[in-house]
Design a protein around this nucleic acid. Structure first.
Lengths: 222, 222
DNA sequence: TGTACATCAGTGAACGCGCGTTCACTGATGTAC
DNA sequence: TGTACATCAGTGAACGCGCGTTCACTGATGTAC
């Protein structure tokens, strides 16, 4: 009668605490779900598929999540955790050269290739069939756009815009990045450059409009 | 033992040919699928659900489609059929006033409200879990963008751009429209104006960049 | 126009299958003394 | 340090259910004469 430790057991026989083991299994469930999500959408994968992929019995699932929807929300959290970390690193990476547009697009290209499952999940479920996931994802994207709108204060012309205008522009940038990521995921590798170039040109055109934009008056009383 | 004509039988007792009856049932299946798709994504709805919603037995499904995927592809075809018809009418509607941006956004707002299921299907399955549907939808969107890039020749500055540049711009416009439609569908009614205004401002900013864009040389030899 | 036969959109029963969830359980890890 | 007990992550059997698909069928519509 087998009943040993977690499915993703370390090859070395390190002593492993119950807490650590549980965390490992949970991670296995999350990774299993992300993997399955690259083929299907969230509301069509089953609890049993996830546990099978993670290497545990279906019933053990309930030790970690109440139901699939809760797993989905954790997926959103963890995906955006990774994404924010990437952005944080990218912002302060001194080895990146070139202007902001080229840098940003290249960053997206690299990270999409390195974390396909994660980006696919976000792109797919953003408009997917599960309301709470859509909400959670759009909330996170909005938060990223809001942070970006603060960063924009450091840029020449746009830095002087009122918050609301910077927010609009940040929204366009984030939107372009997400669309580009989705396009990269669905296209063969040899179209990578084409898609990246297209994104750069689109961003360039947007920035060309910036100096000619008349910021809206900050007359709060509408 | 009942075995009468189609589920969506005309209330009046008009004579109905076999061919017409079959077409009606097929339409009922398409409409049923679109309706179910507003709650779930395509790869999570079942053949039996669709037939139940359409009011026929599960087995009759096979008189119309080989399987669900075929129904999905028909859904794409018919959805874009309607969409193109809307665009055609919108382009030639003499009762629409205002500049192109306001007109376009207002057109999207009106049609999204009138055909929620249709737009939701396109937005949802564009990045959804069924490869062939994604492909089909993106092909159609590309075709719409291409048509638009021809229409753009009629506009002041942009009309002189080379095709490739107009295509890029048309792509941005279509993308903005799709995103706006998706946002409208997922937001409560009282945010309609806010979303529409945002779209108009984004489009305005893009067009401000146009006069300052340096069209790429048409040196075909790269 | 009437009759005999062909077509075929729709039916209901049946199948084997994977699903989510419950249950009582096991046995290693953790803790109290 | 050793012992006795508690905890709890994971197990396998079992359940009822909806699924996709097959099959032989029915009876109104369509067609040939």
């Amino acid at each position: 009668v087998p009943s040993r430790r977690p499915p993703s057991s370390r090859s070395t026989r390190e002593a492993i605490s119950r807490r650590e083991g549980k965390a490992l299994t949970r991670q296995a469930l999350v990774r299993a779900a992300l993997k399955l999500l690259s083929r299907n959408s969230f509301d069509s994968i089953s609890l049993r598929e996830v546990t099978r992929e993670a290497g545990i019995s279906p019933t053990a699932f309930y030790r970690h999540f109440d139901d699939m929807e809760e797993l989905g929300l954790v997926l959103v959290e963890e995906s955006f955790g990774s994404l924010r970390e990437m952005l944080r690193v990218a912002r302060s990476d001194p080895t990146m050269f070139g202007d902001a547009i080229n840098r940003s697009v290249e960053t997206v290209v690299i990270h999409v290739r390195d974390h396909e499952d994660l980006f696919r999940f976000i792109a797919r479920e953003r408009y997917g069939g599960v309301r709470r996931l859509r909400r959670a994802i759009n909330r996170e994207l909005q938060a990223i756009a809001d942070e970006l709108s603060v960063d924009l204060t450091a840029f020449p012309v746009i830095g002087g815009w009122p918050l609301e205008d910077r927010r609009m522009f940040a929204g366009m940038l984030v939107e372009t990045m997400v669309t580009t990521a989705a396009a990269l995921l669905d296209a063969p590798r040899d179209q990578t450059d084409e898609i990246a170039t297209r994104a750069k040109r689109q961003l360039r055109l947007m920035t060309l409009g910036v100096p000619h934009w008349k910021p809206q008056h900050t007359d709060r009383a509408r």
